[in-house]
């Protein structure tokens, strides 16, 4: 994998982020209400409202406002929240660990469970294992993640008292307690994604097994684990990696609601409050944050894809 390729992918990601930044900036201007009045308060005199407007730079032309905001964003400054006297960037970074922990645990669980189940089903097509995996996958895709979280918490936390029902413990303080807190919501969020990955993995293993080169390899005497590792898994992994990338958005959206069920005040809680308060700097910051995480995940997925598939390395 060449360095120029990494640089090129990074540049493409930055272009997407720039489009998102323009889109977000224009979109939040559509939020009804006067942000200057929101900040100044309901009882403020017209003079005070105008002073706040000038202070926020809202009396400037739109382009000037955008460039000022973008300049701030590039330095890690997302502005101040309209409803609390705190910087948006700092608020988001404080809430992020809980949300990202659930997402990460879900991603790892989904890939491990989904790939294992899918590959086993694909190699044993038509057996009872295949039917069980396919049925569970079809069911898993249909279940709302936050509902699964409610069920898991009521069974494993409230009935059996095996794991804590709500709350969060930072990884840096106590990794074991961190895992106890994020395991149930992570597993609930992972279910649908694991099911999607399992379906894709089963399908691509089945497709690869029908390829002439697998027949050739078999004819040459390759069998068992060598055949599976060298010929089947490597080729079947390409569509699976694509699905993992597509699922990133599903995980980052679903976690908003799952974290509420798990009683963690993360990014989702923050975003919900911002939407209800029409705190447009916070919404702006949240959307941009979500885009950065998405582009980051997709960059990793993209590079994994290039690494596995030499055919697209040159492209």
């Amino acid at each position: 994998m060449s360095l120029t390729l990494v640089v090129r992918r990074l540049a493409a990601g930055l272009v997407v982020l720039w489009i998102v930044s323009v889109m977000t900036f224009l979109m939040v201007r559509l939020i009804p209400g006067d942000p200057a009045r929101t900040v100044a308060g309901e009882q403020a005199t017209p003079e005070l409202v105008e002073a706040v407007r000038a202070q926020l730079g809202l009396d400037q032309p739109l382009l000037t406002q955008y460039l000022r905001w973008l300049g701030g964003v590039l330095q890690g400054d997302l502005g101040m929240s309209l409803t609390s006297p705190r910087p948006v960037a700092q608020t988001i970074l404080q809430a992020a660990p809980a949300t990202l922990s659930i997402t990460l645990v879900a991603l790892v669980l989904a890939v491990v469970l989904g790939v294992t189940a899918g590959v086993v089903a694909g190699l044993r097509q038509g057996t009872w294992i295949d039917r069980v995996v396919s049925t569970l996958a079809t069911l898993g895709i249909a279940m709302p993640g936050f509902w699964v979280a409610m069920l898991l918490i009521s069974i494993f936390a409230m009935k059996l008292h095996l794991l804590p029902a709500t709350g969060y413990a930072p990884f840096s303080e106590d990794p074991a307690r961190w895992l106890q807190h994020v395991l149930l919501p992570g597993a609930a969020l992972a279910l649908a994604t694991a099911a999607q990955i399992a379906r894709q993995a089963r399908g691509s293993v089945a497709d690869v097994l029908a390829e002439p080169y697998v027949r050739t390899a078999r004819a040459r005497g390759a069998s068992g684990s060598v055949l599976v590792r060298r010929h089947v898994l490597r080729n079947a992994s390409i569509p699976v990696i694509t699905v993992i990338g597509l699922q990133a958005g599903h995980l980052l959206g679903g976690v908003i609601i799952v974290e509420t069920v798990a009683g963690m005040s993360g990014i989702g809680t923050l975003a919900l409050r911002a939407v209800l308060d029409r705190d447009y700097t916070m919404i702006q910051g949240y959307v941009l944050f979500a885009a950065v995480v998405m582009v980051g995940i997709n960059l990793v997925v993209d590079l994994a894809y290039q690494w596995v598939n030499p055919k697209v390395r040159a492209a």
Binding site: G249, I256, A271, L272, Y280, V287, V295
Partner: peptide, 14 residues
């Protein structure tokens, strides 16, 4: 490139 639910929430703010 945005999570659908995140975008939906931003639009609900409008």
């Amino acid at each position: 490139s945005l999570p659908a639910l995140a975008l939906a929430m931003a639009i609900i703010a409008i």
